[in-house]
Design a protein around this nucleic acid. Sequence first.
DNA 1: GCAATAGTGTCTCTAAGACAATATCGT
DNA 2: ACGATATTGTCTTAGAGACACTATTGC
Lengths: 295, 295
Amino acid sequence: MDLLDRDGLTEREFLEQYRVGDYERPSVATDMVIFTVTDAEPDSYRKLPDKELRILLIRRGGHPFIGKWALPGGFVRPDETTEQAAARELSEETGVDDVHLEQLYTFSDVGRDPRTWVISCSYMALINSDQVQLQAGDDAADVAWFKVSYRLLWERKELIKDGYVKTLEYELKLSIEGEELTAIVDRTVAVKVNSTSTTYSIVSNDGLAFDHAKIIACAIERLRGKVNYTDIALHLMPQLFTLTELQQVYEVILDKELLKAAFRRKVNDLVVETDHYTENAGHRPSRLYRRSLED
Amino acid sequence: MDLLDRDGLTEREFLEQYRVGDYERPSVATDMVIFTVTDAEPDSYRKLPDKELRILLIRRGGHPFIGKWALPGGFVRPDETTEQAAARELSEETGVDDVHLEQLYTFSDVGRDPRTWVISCSYMALINSDQVQLQAGDDAADVAWFKVSYRLLWERKELIKDGYVKTLEYELKLSIEGEELTAIVDRTVAVKVNSTSTTYSIVSNDGLAFDHAKIIACAIERLRGKVNYTDIALHLMPQLFTLTELQQVYEVILDKELLKAAFRRKVNDLVVETDHYTENAGHRPSRLYRRSLED
DNA sequence: GCAATAGTGTCTCTAAGACAATATCGT
DNA sequence: ACGATATTGTCTTAGAGACACTATTGC
């Protein structure tokens, strides 16, 4: 049963004598887009607070991109998977480990890291604000939860030979008290007879390190897509929540308003009602729900 | 504007003196799942041929996994992206370059390659049988287009503390004249209060190298998912095709029968009718369509 | 009572499922 | 004429969008 290769070696013999060639290898890192939802300050008494979608960024303390903000991340070790590396980073950075974690995309543009050849496998994590202590950082001047806004600025469709090219330009705005980062990201879809390809490019970028504006854009689009056909948004909710709060989270993710009746029908199977209600709200109390673990 | 780091260096100075550390780096490869559709031999005169979904595999000529079949792939070079590496492999292997190419997932299980630490960024390509010459290989005894079948064998749901674990077991069968490879792949979805995670594992595997059964399963699931809400299947069609042929392609991908009337309504916006018809079919001729380049 | 939110009812419109009826070729 | 496929029609059902109406609290 032991097959021999051209040199007459068995597989075991081959592996014993195997030496890693000295061709060049990249560093492989993971970068994480960690989302959570927070409450804004309510405008007036008895009004419900607005929800805000936020992601965690870290200010770089060394070159390259010193002083710029970057996604949390780090290099993958030989004894772990990229997913384990991402979970490790997440735990180090936020102290949380039971979260929704999902691989996004692997970025490998030549020159994306000016130091050396680095390929980044990006992940998205969703945390509810119960789990993580915001602003509580110790030396936290260099770690912050930025409010996210991602809006389509314009789109253009250009006909070419055997197809067309469609360009969508988005503005990504990340803000905290006293600081605002803005990046413009293009998504270009080239449709030809036999192929369709999509590429992202950074048009301008103020304050974000590396190609992280692309990674964040990619994460937001994934999140927006999945919100519509999965229960992914429930990972951003605390244990108990009202349907209005859930709807606000959907709205802040999708950046558009939803109809109440239709929304409640839609999420009906994703949640379970409890016997608890909100109190002292200045208006009619609301039933509290929890995530359904059925299906 | 030139910020200095702790050592008093500007970014330029830092990059000039930067040396790659000697911590371990992985090799990064791309593996490609290349799909196409072929016609089976028709049973009788005047019957339409059935469609078959196929992928390209290469028989390994050296250790490890000598004699087993593997996905085409190769290592990524420092001057190219993973996508360019995939396109290069595809072109070398099939001679085709204007195809639908899409990143799937990055696999990094420890020990997935017995030689050394290899992380694989997998891609899926869709080509139509017009573009590639099947069976035409020169030294093609070691390259073959395997017919694909991927079926759910059973599913189980087990309740655990704070959630449940759902396991779906699939049989992946790859066959050519005189050879059949079978792998059993489990997809396990663990749903807990704060997290949902999905993992694939290979239960048994007869004839496929590395973890390629997982990669193929991942590709088929992506293809099945996208067929329902994109025009991705049209990349498997020749320039001109009948709606019945298109329906057969959908059916062989999804492994289930569709209703004709509903199917035609659904794909109506994805195709454009032409003035051509099939001829000499032994029955009523069918209008030929082409892929729509609108939307 | 009033402001604000909670929760439900219903009409319409669209898309999908199911099935049937008719059309048109090659032999 | 017959076998096989092509193409269209329509009834039903499910879901989303739109909008309106009633309910309930704290102040």
